[in-house]
Structure formats: structure tokens, C-alpha cells
Amino acid sequence: MSENEPLLSVQNMEKHFPVTKGLFKRQVGAVKAVDGISFEVFKGETLGLVGESGCGKSTTGRLVTRLLEPTAGKIVFEGEDISHMSQGRLRPLRRDMQMIFQDPYSSLNPRHTVGAIVGAPFRIQGVKTENGVKKAVQDILELVGLSPEHYNRYPHEFSGGQRQRIGIARTLALKPKLIIADEPVSALDVSIQAQVVNLLEDLQKELDLTYVVIAHDLSVVRHISDRVAVMYLGKIVEIADRKRLYSAPMHPYTNALMSAVPVPDPKVRRDRERIRLKGDVPSPLNPPPACRFHTRCWKAQEICKKVEPPLAEMVGGHQVACHFPENAPEVPTAESAAKTG
């Protein structure tokens, strides 16, 4: 595969969940969980997906792994359109596309041993291994930092961090190309979070994995991602490489999110001017028209209520959907050209 060809490409993907009422389940509305988003994921990179609860980031993860079927739009994985593929035809593809779940307590079957859990992908996909499934499973357990002797134990015998490792081992069993990690560390203690983040990074290097990491924690996402997409109410409002996004965020929402993160430095809190957003995230059942952020934005003007800003590229791969972006490159190019010239 060439450098420029994305491993995963999503075009105008939508997912609307119908809201029904009454005896005949008449549809009275739709929750627009994901409402027309486009992005690409390239081989070997990590794309971070951040946003607050209800912004559609988890739905996005479930759509690209086709646990859900999109209402509209296209999902292309390795050059193949999988947006409406049947479950039967998807099955062989599942090997290449796996998911890590948030809650290590509910994502592992309590009645199955670790060996059965991590070995399940081999059985389901009918994969033959050289020295038997058991050996393969034990190798993977070692890879994620567990001991091969854990093969016959049950999930309840493990701590939260170890369980997350079991989940990761299961994900890695068939050497997938793309891994969607939905809040992989948010259920873990601080000291364990760091262990799992480091493990994910090591595995990426070792096995040449591609990640889409979905998280609400901006600092974790910055640490792990190469590029970051910020979502708000079913839309991507900004997408850029990590350095650019965190050093010069353009969308007011991204700015607000970053300034809201508490800084672990007692001196900083006293000097810092924080952007205070008004109110809560509006309901995705009735999202505000045009720019969805205008109800909470301090820069909002008339145009924001009438015209939806498109996700447009500003500088070198930095896309933002805003009429009045911050940190925008200077418009009078003649002047700056004269300076440099």
C-alpha cells in the first residue's frame, strides 16, 4: 500500500437513531449521533478522537468497525467499501479490524477462562496456528505483559489493569491492522493508566499497528496520537496533527476544552484565565441549526446561526469548521510575502 493511500477512509458518514412513539412505533424524530463526518486514517498512525459525552465519538468507533450500520455515507477499509456489507461478508474482515473496550469488567465473559477469551478469535475465524492455539495465546499473553500461567484463570482473579491487558491480548490475537480503542484507559487508576498507555505505544511499534483512540481526556489523547479530531454534537469541528492542534487550536470549542482541563500545578491556577463555557452540550435530538456550537460560543455572530461553517483546511492539514477561527494564519499574504521577500 502506498504512503498516501489511507487504511481507513470515512466520507460523509451519518448515523441517525430513530426516535419512535406510540403503538405503531411512528418515527417522531432522530438522534443525530453522527451527522456527516469525513476523515482518513493512514497506516501506522494514531488518530485521536476527542469530545464530550454525547458528541458521537463512540458511535463513530462502532460505525467504522461496522458494529453499527451507517444511515448514510461511505466507509472504505483497505480500498473496499464496507458501509453496507453483510455480516457474513464482514466476518473475514474482522480479523483486520478490532476493538478495545472501555470497561474491562463488562467486556470479558466472567465464565470463560483467559485462555478461552483470548483464544476465541482463533476458533471463530478458524485460524490454524503452528504449535496449537494454546501456545499462540500464551505468546500473546506474554506480549501484553501477563504471564503464560494465567491461561486457566478467570477474569475476576485479575485487577482492572490486568483485565484491560486481557482485552488487549484478545484484540491482538489475529494481528489486526486497525485497532479502535474506545476509552481504553478511562476506567483505570492513574498509575495503571500510564502502564496501559505505554503498552499500547510499544505494541504499535512492535506490530506496526494503526490506532483510532477515542477518549475524553485531552492529555491522554495528546500523549498517544499523531493526529487529533475534535468532535462536537455529531460533527468534526477541528482536525489537525497533534502539535498544531495543541499549540494553536483554531476552533473556539477546542480552545475552551483545553482551557477547561485542570492543570496539576498550584501556581498556574492563580494566574490562569479560563474560558468559561455557558451551559451544557445541547441534546443531539434537537441540535442547534447552522454552527452547532453557536449557543455556547463567545464569538458567535448572526452568520453562525444561519450558515453552517464547512470543515475547511486552513494551513498544512489543519482543518477547522468555524466562521471565526482563532490563531488563523494572517490573511494579507502580500504583506508577509513582502517581508520575507
Binding site: V190, Q193, S219, M258, V261, V263
Partner: peptide, 15 residues
């Protein structure tokens, strides 16, 4: 253990 937004990102966390 904690990644921080107020500093340049490190290669690795120190768990």
C-alpha cells in the same frame, strides 16, 4: 504517570 497539557509531551510516561 500523568500526561500533562501544560508541558511538551514526552516519549513515554513513567508509570
Amino acid at each position: 504517570s500523568m500526561p500533562r497539557l501544560d508541558r511538551e509531551p514526552t516519549e513515554r510516561l513513567l508509570p
